[in-house]
Design a protein around this nucleic acid. Structure first.
Ligand SMILES: [Mn+2]
Ligand SMILES: [Mn+2]
Ligand SMILES: [Zn+2]
Ligand SMILES: [Zn+2]
Lengths: 131, 131
DNA sequence: TTTGAATTTAGAATAAGTATAAATCTTATT
DNA sequence: AATAAGATTTATACTTATTCTAAATTCAAA
């Protein structure tokens, strides 16, 4: 299951995601491909994103918005969304193990992972607001 | 903004959500309404769910599945999904304040809230699996 | 009663994503 | 080089969840 077939279109999609640091949606990726002069079929972009996700070169993020976002940062991390401007930033601070432990005890689940989405106001929007 | 107009359909939808403890989707609510003998328009159920959410009688949950779920439990809490059977259970254990603090410091955000979705295997599915 | 606002209804429209089937590209085999 | 097999891309149709629209209905003043 390790074989990797990076076609022109998959490579181009991967490059976009790798070089974007704003967690782009499929539509974002599409626009950036067009800006670079590519004109792939709509479905190809989705297929490529799915392929890259399956091969674990990128991650799909479901943050509670209408569209999935994509992330080439693979280390385990969480996200925070600005309620004012909508930007999505990284949260590297790890979930406390004691908390997962408490949840396992409380629920009786074997807890495998946690997806956390923080909400708040980013520093830029904070300064704009105080004006 | 406090006026509350609970029509027959809104009341019926509210009753379903209040008496369901499995975090039903809009489609679930619809089916249960039909079981009770109601036959509301599709859009009315969505409108009612939106209305009740706006009036804060229920909460809309976006857990990363395709459809929203609804919850009449209003106290601040999180959720955990069984990867085997798909059930959604409550997590009352609160997010550690130190962690939110660390995230605020790391990101520079004014952190307002966190949505957490744990994933794992529920106790029922654990026992079934060991067999 | 008439009037007007709010609500419901049926159905059309939208948005994100998936499925399909034909066309094209790759890779091996002769 | 010619062929066949397999994978991929393309264009388009479809699905699913949800919202929008416009007409019909309900409900509450005046
Ligand atoms: Mn990220
Ligand atoms: Mn709940
Ligand atoms: Zn912001
Ligand atoms: Zn289970």
């Amino acid at each position: 299951m390790k074989s990797l077939n990076l076609t022109t279109q998959r490579q181009a999609v991967y490059d976009i995601v790798r070089n974007s640091h704003d967690h782009p949606t499929a539509a974002d990726v599409m626009n950036r491909l067009v800006e670079k002069g590519y004109n792939f079929a709509y479905g190809t972009v989705y297929n490529s994103l799915r392929y890259l996700t399956e091969k674990e070169l990128i991650r799909e993020l479901k943050l509670g918005e209408s569209a999935s976002r994509y992330d080439a940062k693979l280390d385990d991390h969480q996200h925070i969304i600005c309620e004012v401007c909508g930007r999505v930033d990284e949260v590297m601070s790890e979930i406390p193990k004691e908390w997962s432990g408490a949840v396992a005890k409380e629920t009786g689940y074997d807890v495998h992972h946690a997806h956390v989405v923080f909400g708040g106001v980013c520093s830029e929007c904070q300064t704009k607001r105080t004006k």
